[in-house]
Amino acid sequence: MKTVFTTGEAAEICKVSQQTIIRCFDSGRLKGFRVPGSRFRRIPRDALMAFMKDNGIPPDQLNNGKSKILVVDDDPEIVELFVDVLERDGRFEVKTASTGYDAGILTNEFRPDLIILDYMLPDVNGNVVCKTIRSNEEYNGTKIIIVSGVVNQDEIDELRKSGADDFVKKPFNIDKLIERIGELLAV
């Protein structure tokens, strides 16, 4: 995945002129760096995304127009079900993990817009994963939906405190789930 953009590439993604990008870069509104030993400007992916978000520029061009969703569950059939459901919708790019550890690595690498997180994972519980992600400001924009078979109001309240955006009980209604994801990502 492309992580650093030139001012020309950024202008194309943002559908503005290169001059505008350069002006914003120079004024500091668009974060970036110069290539050492030269005057060439370079813009990291995160900085570009932040810039686009700040200025209300649709991010479609950045991810081929798709929201990135990470599905974390130790049950492969559940994972497969989520993948089928989300890909069938067409608006999402999906990656999967089966442990909390994998989930951490993939979050850092894939930078998902939304994580569907099973509460009962083989290594750590969903609320721990949730807390870890929330403790990093880099992922402030990442939405988290926790999925569990056990429904207990106290536990749900606890999960919300840990930073989960929503809770879905297994088994779930597919249509309602997609609807909720759409709301959270505002796509």
């Binding site: 559940i78 088994p171 209604n173 597919i174």
Partner: peptide
């Protein structure tokens, strides 16, 4: 709840699809 809800989720999800 934990053991049965996963298979149920699969049954439920697949039947919806």
């Amino acid at each position: 709840a934990h053991e049965m809800n996963n298979p149920l989720a699969v049954i439920s999800g697949r039947s919806q699809l």
